[in-house]
Amino acid sequence: MKLSTVFLLAALGFCAVYAADVVDGEVTEDSTRATTEDDDLTIGASPDAALAFQFVQPADANTINEVYGGSPVKFLIGFQNRGEKDFIVKFSETSYRYPLDFNYYLQNFTRGEYNRRVAPKEEVTLDYAFFTHESLAGRSLGLVVNVHYEDADGKYFINNVYNQTITVVEDDSGFNGETGFMFLIFVALGIGALYVANQFLSKLSRKSGLQKRSTVEQGTSGNEVDYEWIPRDIIKNSEKKSPIAGSPKARKAKKTD
């Protein structure tokens, strides 16, 4: 995979890849040496390999040396074979060190396994990502990235591609994974509450409508009276004593008065 134009120019600008020793709390550059963790054996970088390093997340870490706590850190490593033999890039190792003495490890991250063969005059881009815990926010740490590789003859090399003090800062973007998750929960709860309220109001409206309809059905309309349950002799006597208003007998009684 070819490097981008900018990244290629950066890689070609490396006359030698630097490594670092710590002297009185300061990082001093050494272009040829890196030290293994196992036996403190100093192994140099191959003169036929040119390596470059670049952060991609956060991108501004390349200039201000700051990463965000609680967020992933991602970077690219460019490897260029300038020699006549194949190289095999084995892996990269990344670690946080005590900033006043890089010999003290604070955290080792999982190795980036590559096992990539790089032919003569070929270039490849390797990537890696690790997570910086949010509890480290506000602290300065030494970040060290080493690349292990060997040539076709089995000769082993280590290049130190990054060795600087960085500051872990809080992510003030206002939106992270936890915030997004909580936002989705509140939205779901709001939708659920609206649904329950709508169902309750719907049931209440249906009950109110049934009560209104039952009241109308139970009542009587107009002057309809059910006389079937009244004995006939009572009805006859009441008609004689109290003529119905508007009947011929009632009108006749009025005229007589």
Score class of each variant (00 low, 15 high):
Glu26His: 14
Phe186Met: 05
Thr220Arg: 14
Glu217Arg: 12
Ser140Arg: 11
Arg116Val: 12
Val168Ser: 01
Asp127Asn: 14
Asp226His: 10
Asn62Met: 02
Asn65Phe: 06
Asp21Trp: 05
Ile64Phe: 00
Ser242Pro: 00
Arg117Asn: 11
Gly154Gln: 08
Thr215Ile: 12
Thr179Lys: 12
Met1Tyr: 06
Ser208Gln: 15
Glu123Phe: 09
Gly190Met: 02
Pro47Gly: 09
Ala20Cys: 10
Asn81Tyr: 03
Tyr68Glu: 06
Val168Gly: 01
Thr110Val: 14
Gly13Val: 00
Arg139Thr: 04
Phe53Pro: 01
Leu106Ser: 11
Leu41Asp: 04
Arg232Cys: 00
Ser31Lys: 09
Thr179Met: 01
Ser202Gly: 11
Val27Met: 11
Glu134His: 11
Glu170Tyr: 08
Val73Gly: 03
Thr94Gly: 12
Asn223Asp: 09
Phe75Asp: 04
Lys121Glu: 14
Gln211Gly: 07
Lys2Phe: 05
Pro243Val: 03
Gln218Tyr: 06
Leu8Gly: 00
Ser221Glu: 05
Asp60Arg: 14
Phe183Tyr: 05
Ser238Arg: 07
Lys236His: 03
Asn65Leu: 11
Leu106Trp: 03
Val144His: 04
Ser135Phe: 03
Arg213Phe: 07
Tyr18Val: 09
Ser205His: 13
Ala20Ile: 01
Asn223Leu: 07
Tyr96His: 11
